[in-house]
Amino acid sequence: MNVQVEPAKLKAKDFASDQEVRWCPGCGDYAILKAVQMALANMGAKPDNTVFVSGIGCASRFPYYMATYGFHTIHGRAPAVASGVKLANPDLDVWIVSGDGDALSIGGNHLLHVLRRNMDVQFLLFNNEIYGLTKGQYSPTSQIGQKSPSTPQGSVDAPIDACTFALGCNARFIARGIDIQAKDLGHVFTRSRDHKGASFVEIIQNCIVFNDDAFAHFTEKKVAKETQIHVVHGAKLIYGAESNKGLSIKPGAFELEAVTIGENGITEDDILVHDETNKVLASLLVAMKPPAMPVALGVIYCDPAPSYEQAVKDQVEAAKAKGLGDMDALLRSGNTWTVS
């Protein structure tokens, strides 16, 4: 007789495969990998029901290191492969792991469509503003002036902000985290999985070899509190070492400004409250850049809508409910004649 036993709660290491992790020593990807494994354990995810799909690039080696189902596909196409997985089996918990080149350059089209369709997947974009696996060329998120093997005089290519792109694609869930902030990442991962529909998570990731310290101006401990704002739905948009800074609407303009409570007559009442269902606010938050503004982190936007694969499944089920297909009858539909 089969006795169903409640399995013991899994630990982070239960989500680690037996494969040796082969990123460069000191790569931000290690921290993200640990954070994902920890988050999956904490949220009670089942390895058997979890699928990681990736494209090509350093980040895309991710599935090999997970003790789940995994599919390392081709450059830029992970969202398309993941869409097929989800359409065939909507019950699977599907995660896509991609990088800035994979997701926003060669795979930009697929990212657009997986988000606007609202396929129920979690999309993790590891943004290091560089092509790592091909040895250091500039990427679509690299800053103007970035020197690289393909831009020896500095890039003249205008970059895209990943979260702004996702918002433009009508993503219904947008969050941002930093590789070294494991606890915050864990929270974001849990929220992204709980969200029914496409969840987009940008993870600021340091490439120690080709673009070291690209984000140091807001990730270094000594500046972090003054340059990061961790947004929480329903809470005031306050940040700073003294928790005395905040975001408010600039008088007479349609833009945010960073203000200091207690200066120029600013009180806490002037500080905006974060509303993660407000798309306009989200569009202002994702675009903020230091030094003038802090970088927005956490769940910036979350406004659920019906997911694509569920709607597709509903149509199939509705058609079946009207009567299962009969092949012999189908072949004989329309005009037929009999020869005896």
Partner: peptide, 22 residues
């Protein structure tokens, strides 16, 4: 669809092949 057929009009030819593989 009553034959258990799911159809997906993908965003491009590559996505069509990749989603079929998925």
């Amino acid at each position: 669809k009553n034959f258990g057929v799911t159809t997906f009009q993908a965003e491009d030819e590559i996505a069509a092949a990749c989603s079929a593989i998925g």
